[in-house]
Design a protein around this nucleic acid. Structure first.
Lengths: 140, 140
DNA sequence: CAGGATCCGTTTCGATACTG
DNA sequence: CAGTATCGAAACGGATCCTG
């Protein structure tokens, strides 16, 4: 029972997890802009709205890419932090970012400059920093 | 590190281009499953619907990731083919795929096995094959 | 028959007002 | 400040229809 009308593709993509319009943007903000609080994500220039942001953060926590620290019931602190699976997305985002800069330079904002893809040392260093931060703020 | 109300992130992501739910799936099918025709994309197990598929293909052609060959006005052949920017996404998809397999093995379908990330030679070879195919089927 | 357009019910989004 | 409630707008998904 291999082949019916539905043909399958020989790779899995992970797009079920990060394939929507906002999820990767939130993760990017945590990685490269050091954002930790609900309010900070709201202020990203792409302009996510609060209900969608709440939804995506909840999903990220549920799937284990992010943890939420602070009072579980009601907290006005709410610190979000990347877990290991989340941190592991760094090379993917770097790779995508480089693709965009090379093939669609027009979409690049003036301030956009970090260019990690291919720089293994820099990637590893940033990942280490994120790991340390994760541990510091309530880790795992 | 500067801060106003709209804080910006130091990298551009390319998500404006490939950040929706379907675009990367179509590209993946072209890369790894050798799909070329409208009908074939429709049959992917994720189940894209024909109106959405038509829309995404048109957008991919417009943005230059894909070309459409056949009679420009009305053709019942309609062969879609990846351009260089499209082909350049291969490492990104490979990287994402590996991430998913490592951190979310549960999402992996049994048939999913290709594992190119990190295998530079294999990536380059597949890209070469795609370039040849692109030239063969109406190139540029 | 293939590519794709059209119609329409359902889901998701986006903006903003609101609550603890 | 961290979210929720609400509601109109847009996108989706499915079926069907149209055109070579």
């Amino acid at each position: 029972m291999r082949q019916d009308t539905r043909s399958t593709c020989p790779i899995s993509t992970g797009l079920e997890i990060v394939g929507d319009r906002w999820t990767l943007l939130v993760i990017r903000d945590m990685m490269f802009a050091g954002k930790r609080h609900f309010r900070e994500f709201l202020q990203s220039e792409e302009g996510i709205s609060s209900n969608v942001l709440a939804d995506r953060l909840a999903m990220l926590v549920e799937r284990g890419l992010v943890t939420r620290a602070g009072d579980p019931a009601h907290a006005q602190k709410a610190i979000y932090s990347l877990t290991e699976p989340g941190i592991a997305l760094l090379p993917v985002i770097a790779s995508l970012s480089r693709w965009a800069q090379v093939h669609f330079p027009a979409t690049r904002r003036p301030e956009a400059r970090v260019f990690l893809d291919g720089d293994e040392a820099a990637i590893a260093a940033l990942q280490q920093a994120l790991r340390r931060e994760h541990l510091a703020s309530g880790g795992r």
